[in-house]
Structures are given as C-alpha cells and as structure tokens.
Design a protein around this nucleic acid. Structure first.
Ligand code: FES
Ligand code: FES
Lengths: 152, 152
DNA sequence: CATCTCGCAACAACAAAAGTTTCGAATTCC
DNA sequence: GGAATTCGAAACTTTTGTTGTTGCGAGATG
C-alpha cells in the first residue's frame, strides 16, 4: 500500500517557510519536495482553508505563513490535509450479523483505537516550533549545512 | 487508500474452522468471506507455510487447523499474511540531507514507532482462543443465532 | 501589456489489495 | 481407469487513492 507522505511533506515545508523572508512560490516549494507545483498547491490548499497559510498571486506572490509555528501542532496539519486514515489495515464486514466477525472486529477495532489515540495525543502535543527547535539542535552539531535555496 | 482486510478475514475464518469437523474447502470459506476461492487460497497459503493450517487435495479435502487456537496469536496471523504495513501514513525522503526533513521524520517516526509497539503488544497478547471466548459470550446473549453453513 | 503566480479541472501513472480466468496436478470415489 | 473434487499457481483485470502532468483562466505586479 502506498504511504501517504503529505503530512511529512507539509511539516517540512512549513518549517522552512518560517525561516525565509517573503513568500515562497509553489515552484520553489515543489523543488524542495521533489515534486511539481500543482501537487504543492493541491496539498497546501487545505492549510490555507484552515488559516495556516495565505497565498498571493502575481509578481512576488506565493505562500506565506499566517501563524507562528508555536501555534500549529502536527495534528492541525494532519487535519488540514483532510484527516487521512492512519491505518492501512482495516476490518472486513463480509457478514455483519456473524458473531465471530463481530468479536474479531471488536478486538481489532479496540487495538487500532488505542493506537490511534496514542498517535493523536502525540501529534497534538508537538508544535511545529518544537520541530524547528529540534532542527536547530541538529544544525548546531554539524559543519556542512544543507544548501537548498529555501534553507536560509 | 484501500484498507487491507486480510488479517480480519483470517481471524474470522480460523475461529470458524475450529468449530467444524473435518476440512473446509476454499469454496466454503470463500462464501463465508464474500469472496472467491482463489483469494482464499492466496491468503491462506501464508498460514499454511507458517504451520497453522494444512491443506489437502481431492474429495474430502480442504483446509484444516493444525494447532489449538490457544497457541495462535493475532500477531502470528499478521506475520503469516506477510507482515503488511500497519500505517497508511509515511514519511517523505525527498531531501535526505535536509535537517528539517530529518527532524520532522524523526518526530513522525517515533510517534509511529510507539503506536506500532502498542499494536504489536496488543496483538501478541490476544490468542484466537480469547477471540473464540469473546464469541461465546456474545452467543450466549442473543436468541437468533447466525445461520451461515460454517457457523456450526 | 508582458510576466509572474495561483486556481482549477481533467487526466495519466502508480501501487497494492482484491477479484477473475484458466490452466495443471493430486486425491478420492465409483 | 475414469470422473469428480480440490488445491496450486500463473496471468490477467478491477478497484481505490495518492501522486504526477498538462492546459487554461484569472488576478497581481511592473
Ligand atoms: S528541502 Fe530542506 S533544505 Fe532544502
Ligand atoms: S461467516 Fe461467520 S457465521 Fe458464517
């Protein structure tokens, strides 16, 4: 099953955007992400609708953060890209009236529920500012810095 | 993303199989699962290879459990169908040298790792006999029993 | 007005499970 | 021995959702 990489990508981008002056174009961001500008617009549209980003057309336009990183959690971003399912494994409902199926799916369901609860708690507790701090710590430790055009 | 239902299906089937005498054919099982015999063989091949099932050709042939349910855990079955990924969300590695990406993916990774650990512990702690007990409890509570040809 | 840039729609590519068709081979029944 | 069962395996097609691509329109800037 193909893994959804939108959350990872958006977190990455937002932290970079916080470090640059002015707007970042979809083109620049696409290069960062190794993809193309249309995918960027598609994914970031959700973040704009939820009020984390603003987009501007024309010369000097592009995407701008509208909130401090400390006010955005990983969970916020997950929700902004449409709350995609966390799990690739699900329950089958082939015979809904079958009590065996019900017992199995109840056990599976409660396991996934507990795991999802853990994930959500974790995601809600980490702000993008926390991730930026983590980045700074890594940055302080090494000599040769990344050289992407958006990394400064 | 389509959800993998093999685990749920196999658990369902195995518990039913424990309650019937003799072998169950792929055809019968396919009816139980609302699918067709080829899918059944494909999925159950893994369980046979791991020693939970035996298959026999010809008249009177089919699938037989080779172990008591108390010696099979949910985790065993997950492994037997090929250890499919639990999560539909993954990390992007577009710029492996980028420290922001590393910080983001480290946070995501540790969250998923913790959730996976929880899932694995839970799955390892539940045997199919536990699920069968759960089924019996549900069975005792209701009047009209399921009527599938494999349910007795 | 030329250029930049987003917005949107339509569609192709891709991946993985699920479903289907069609063989063959082994076993059992008559 | 022949017919009927039943699994095994290969080679598709279908399905579902992310990702990638192309093309055109509409603001904004200089
Ligand atoms: S993509 Fe993170 S440094 Fe350029
Ligand atoms: S499928 Fe469970 S009762 Fe028939």
């Amino acid at each position: 099953m193909r893994r959804d990489s939108r959350l990872s990508r958006m977190l990455h981008v937002l932290i970079h955007m916080d470090r640059i002056d002015g707007a970042a174009t979809s083109d620049q961001i696409a290069q960062m992400l190794g993809t193309n500008p249309v995918v960027v617009r598609r994914t970031m549209a959700g973040l704009r609708d939820d009020g984390y980003l603003h987009s501007e057309k024309g010369h000097g336009g592009g995407w701008v953060l509208t909130r401090p990183l400390s006010e955005i959690t990983m969970l916020d971003i997950h929700r902004a890209i449409g709350n995609p399912a966390f799990f690739a494994v699900g329950v089958a409902v082939d015979h809904p009236e079958c009590l065996v199926e019900q017992a199995v799916n109840s056990a599976l369901g409660s396991a996934f529920e507990a795991a999802e609860k853990l994930l959500i708690e974790k995601f809600a507790s980490v702000t993008l500012a926390d991730l930026a701090d983590e980045f700074d710590q890594r940055m302080a430790k090494i000599a040769d810095k990344p050289t992407c055009e958006l990394s400064r």
